[in-house]
Design a binder for these strands. Structure first.
Lengths: 111, 111
DNA sequence: GGAATATAGGTAGAACTTCTAGGTGTTCCA
DNA sequence: TGGAACACCTAGAAGTTCTACCTATATTCC
């Protein structure tokens, strides 16, 4: 009943992943950590959301992955943005701005 | 290919409906029109999204409906906010603020 | 040495929302 | 009288995200 509930990503997950990847090559596990850190723990990205999302973005040609070795000697898939992915990120950011503007218009309405 | 695509509500639909209903008793068809008008056509709420959402909100005890007659002499279900619905709206607005703040933190990050 | 924890990858299936595409009937106006 | 706008609705598909699992390796602590 009174339990804490995990936060919904509300359709922003793809954009957030693209943005974090745009900062430089990074592997999946670190993407989740970064999103959580930067958002000050608001987003707690579960692996069951993360990996399907990464595969989806790769399938669409927005991300490209290479197996490399991390600093700590582990095998990990490093993701990078494709040119298509960069355009997609721009489009999503623009649309996010329009969406939040539209929501703000409605939330500000008073009778 | 180059066609216009309908806009996603990205999980905001419930909040938007609750907000519009909070402005005063209103029937479903008019809710969709208002959301579209106030958002300057950004949101184009389809009936197949609208009515299931209204029933969902009513089932959860956030909305209450009464059949009445419109000014133009038609039967319509007028929706109003329950006390529970008002609390839910406040909670959703608060969470929306936190969500957009968290997204903004990530989008503003530069390497 | 052995156990626990953190790191790193993943899948399966359910739950939920939203969309597409239909359907019914009424009132108004040309 | 016939079409557009109004007003209600459902079914089924598509898509995302969640819960709950799984594997394996490196590090740290007892």
């Amino acid at each position: 009943m009174g339990e804490e509930k995990s936060e919904f990503l509300k359709g922003t997950l793809d954009m957030l992943i693209l943005k974090v990847v745009a900062l430089g090559p990074i592997h999946g596990y670190a993407i989740a950590q970064r999103i959580q850190q930067i958002s000050r723990d608001f987003f707690q990205l579960q692996q069951g959301s993360l990996y399907p999302a990464l595969h989806r973005l790769e399938d669409r040609g927005w991300l490209k992955a290479d197996w490399k070795t991390t600093e700590t000697g582990r095998d990990a898939k490093f993701y990078g943005l494709t040119p298509k992915g960069r355009k997609q990120l721009e489009a999503e950011v623009e649309n996010w701005g329009k969406l939040t503007d539209a929501v703000a218009l409605i939330l500000r309405t008073a009778e």
